[in-house]
Design a protein around this nucleic acid. Structure first.
Length: 525
DNA sequence: GAATGCGGGCGCA
DNA sequence: TGCGCCCGCATTC
């Protein structure tokens, strides 16, 4: 965003060319060269001056070891946006912007929202703001908020890398988020802006009336806002929403219909002491307009995380009565969090973690903050029941890709697992975007996940079934041979890369078995 | 005020 | 040396 374009721009190396065949990214040898990827600019490889032939649609929820190439005019890419709460990380490389995931903020008591989901807030990016955020109380149960750190990359936060190259913006994600999706930035912004608008309209009549009163005017008392007490501290209201009372439809927030929400989500009950000013008002009603997010508003079949979905009501239709916080019911996967719970349950078993209070699942868990900061922590993404599948099992190779973010990257040899990746990838590979329906196949790269297919299947709530879940940008390569971090060199390692874009039902593969073109130095970032 | 990007610096492996 | 991370600073919204 603010970064000087020149900073991340190094025109000397547009070394990646991707060709799309059969609707799938196919990487030719030159693309294999693209292993230089984000670090390409550091190599000044004169051979590679071509611009990418094709670009990916922007993916707001990249997950897994994926790479994308965006057009340089892609606004979201320009801003290095991500649905995940990513903070800037200094990688001492001015050409590459590195960001690490902050995780998600949840209720420490894992209280259940009226719809059965749970709070999943977007951690503030700013450290101070984040601390401040964590000091706030859960808008639902008033208990503490807790930050679930991301440990999806070998125990470290998932990292995203951005590099501007000519007319392309190269993106690479490393690690699999082992936590639920937070509220996306667009959602947060939309909610805040909506709230501001709402508050503005809320105050306008008040101010007007005050002016009128001050002017000696005595309008009749039938005015809607007559009963509205002065909001002494508007920030409190903002705090509540910022604290993350997720708008319906946000990740982990869903209601089959608005009535259900109305019946269960009385703001005065919900906010309790958090909103004393509004409590004074007997019938507050707040509408949250739909954010201007187009691609997030996929169909019901999508795992779209947008909080504002089909039952959105335009703010213009705000009624005057203020009985309820009339949030919009959303067409959202109500079971999302149960998936989350299942995943937690699984991982608890898998890793010997025991949920607090002896109950499985996040629902009863009260120890968010006590999670061990281990690499194999489960994936909690509520929208992807198999998310935890992407977590490497204990003992599994932590990293298949050695990407040094400062100067060079090394793809190192990996000991191929017994299972043939090609056979299993169709069953378990996940690769999609929020707007999968419109999104072209994305690039899947060898750093993709490494969980054995057996584990993957075993951990699926639905059993060993094919898993193709649209709605985000995840890449799972459960059985693929990966370059392993611990391997001494990758020139001796042959690997087959496959991409299985969601909904395509096909895979591609490309190998780099000791290709002379495949210099693993400076591969990525 | 918060988000964002940059860069110095430190500790660890 | 690579990497994660903290911190401060500057800029932008």
């Amino acid at each position: 965003m603010k970064s000087a374009p020149g900073k991340l721009h190094s025109p000397a190396n547009q070394n990646l060319r991707a060709q799309r065949g059969s609707g799938i990214w196919i990487l030719d040898m030159e693309v294999v060269l693209s292993a230089t990827w984000l670090l390409a600019g550091e190599n000044d490889n004169p051979r590679c001056s071509e611009e990418p032939a094709h670009f990916d649609h922007f993916c707001e929820w990249p997950d897994g070891y994926v790479r994308f190439i965006y057009r340089s005019d892609e606004k979201k890419a320009q801003r290095h946006l991500s649905g995940w709460a990513m903070r800037n990380t200094n990688n001492h490389n001015g050409h590459i912007l590195k960001k690490s995931c902050l995780g998600v903020v949840v209720c420490a008591r894992a209280c259940m929202l009226p719809d059965g989901s749970r709070l999943q807030l977007r951690p503030a990016i700013c450290d101070k703001a984040r601390l401040k955020q964590q000091k706030k109380a859960c808008p639902n149960c008033h208990s503490a908020l807790e930050l679930i750190p991301c440990r999806g990359h070998s125990g470290y936060p998932v990292t995203n890398f951005w590099r501007l190259e000519g007319n392309a913006i190269f993106f690479q994600a490393k690690g699999v988020h082992d936590h639920p999706r937070p509220e996306s930035k667009s959602e947060t912004e939309a909610r805040r802006s909506a709230l501001k608008r709402q508050m503005a309209s809320f105050y306008q009549p008040q101010k007007k009336r005050i002016r009128e009163l001050e002017a000696g005017v005595n309008p009749n008392n039938s005015g809607h806002f007559n009963s509205i007490p002065p909001l002494e501290n508007p920030e409190e209201f903002d705090m509540i929403t910022d604290t993350g009372f997720p708008a319906p439809g946000q990740p982990g927030f869903s209601f089959p219909n608005s009535d259900a929400y109305k019946a269960t989500c009385d703001l005065t009950t919900f906010q309790g002491d958090i909103m004393p000013p509004l409590q004074k008002h007997p019938k507050p009603r707040i509408y949250l307009p739909r954010p201007p997010c187009s691609y997030e508003l996929a169909g019901p079949g999508s795992t779209n995380s947008s909080p504002y979905a089909t039952l959105y009501k335009d703010s213009s239709s705000i009624p005057t009565d203020t009985d309820w916080v009339h949030l919009n019911a959303l067409h959202y996967n109500v079971n999302s969090y149960s998936n989350f719970e299942r995943s937690f349950d699984f991982t608890s078993k898998q890793h010997g973690w025991k949920p607090a209070l002896g109950k499985p699942g996040l629902g009863e868990r009260t120890d968010h903050g006590q999670f061990p900061a281990v690499a194999a922590r489960p994936c909690y993404n509520p929208e992807l029941p198999c998310r935890y599948l992407t977590s490497p099992p204990p003992g599994a190779p932590a990293l298949q890709t050695v990407i040094t973010t400062t100067t060079k990257v090394s793809y190192q040899a990996y000991q191929p697992p017994a299972l043939k990746y090609c056979d299993s990838v169709r069953e378990v590979s996940l690769s999609s975007c929020n707007y999968a329906s419109e999104n072209p196949p994305m690039s899947i790269y060898p750093e993709a996940l490494d969980l054995p297919a057996a584990v993957t299947r075993a951990t699926s709530p639905a059993g060993p079934v094919p898993l193709k879940i649209p709605g985000d940008c995840r890449a799972i390569r459960p059985t693929l041979a990966f370059p392993q971090e611990s391997a001494p060199s990758r020139t001796d390692g042959a690997e087959t890369w496959e991409a299985c874009p969601s909904g395509l039902g096909s895979t591609i593969s490309y190998s780099d078995a000791g290709s002379p073109f495949f210099s693993y130095d400076n591969d990525d970032f």
